[in-house]
Design a protein around this nucleic acid. Sequence first.
DNA 1: CCGACATAGTTGTATAATGCAAGTATATAG
DNA 2: CTATATACTTGCATTATACAACTATGTCGG
Lengths: 139, 139
Amino acid sequence: MTTNAIQIIEAELGIFIRRFIAATTNKKVGNLDRAAYLLLHQISTHGSAGVKALAEEFQLDISTISRQTAALEQKGYLYRIPDPQDGRAYSMQLTDAGTEELALNKQARLAYLTKHLQDWTEEDQQRFGELLNKFNDTF
Amino acid sequence: MTTNAIQIIEAELGIFIRRFIAATTNKKVGNLDRAAYLLLHQISTHGSAGVKALAEEFQLDISTISRQTAALEQKGYLYRIPDPQDGRAYSMQLTDAGTEELALNKQARLAYLTKHLQDWTEEDQQRFGELLNKFNDTF
DNA sequence: CCGACATAGTTGTATAATGCAAGTATATAG
DNA sequence: CTATATACTTGCATTATACAACTATGTCGG
């Protein structure tokens, strides 16, 4: 059997996911672990959202998101706005501290990436971004 | 601040990792979860190895790998060969059942990927594989 | 050769993330 | 108005993991 492109992608994805998880699990940048960073990032880029919507976005149980957002609220990075139309619902919004912490984290992540991609050509960087985006669209 | 390629990569990696984890965590193909698949895959492609070497490769604690390999041995997918030079050491090798189970899993993963990448040009697929490989090399 | 230290692996224990199920409060439909 | 659905919280069990203690074996300096 010939090794086609998809087989190569499968193998590389395995390596990639393993290393990425190893590099980011249980390692915080400042006060944010990976889950917290992604939550703040989501709210920051896609606007305030409730527990249910976030749970669907991340494909995690509502209870998990409920606890994670409660923790971030406790730390002062999020605050909850009661939904004026629905007394059961809230939407989570970033506080200034949350915005700042997110920016710090993003900075650190960009620095890390920049270091890793320093030998790449600008064209390869762009292409990689495009293809990742294309790949994400297929999920 | 302009959005350069690295910023795009950072954002896409965040989305990617979230979806990939959601799609593969706690979801088994047959009898193998992600960790088990990666372990068998590693042994299959890089040859038999001991607990310590595997732990280093995956950047997990030795105790974690010890338990995972014990579980796979229990299921009959691995067997251990005592190191003839070192009475403390073993190396893990795939059994026929392990090889078969791994092949089934790989098949399923390839089918999944193929479905997702069916609209991609052959060239984009190849490029994505190359860039992923290049990225993995920088870890 | 022996004692001290190093190494490969296992097992006990604590922690943390998660899912499921039950519970609370609010909304909606008949 | 009652019954059901929904948004969220909380209690509980499970699981993956790390760390530390332990066992058995290897190695090195005297």
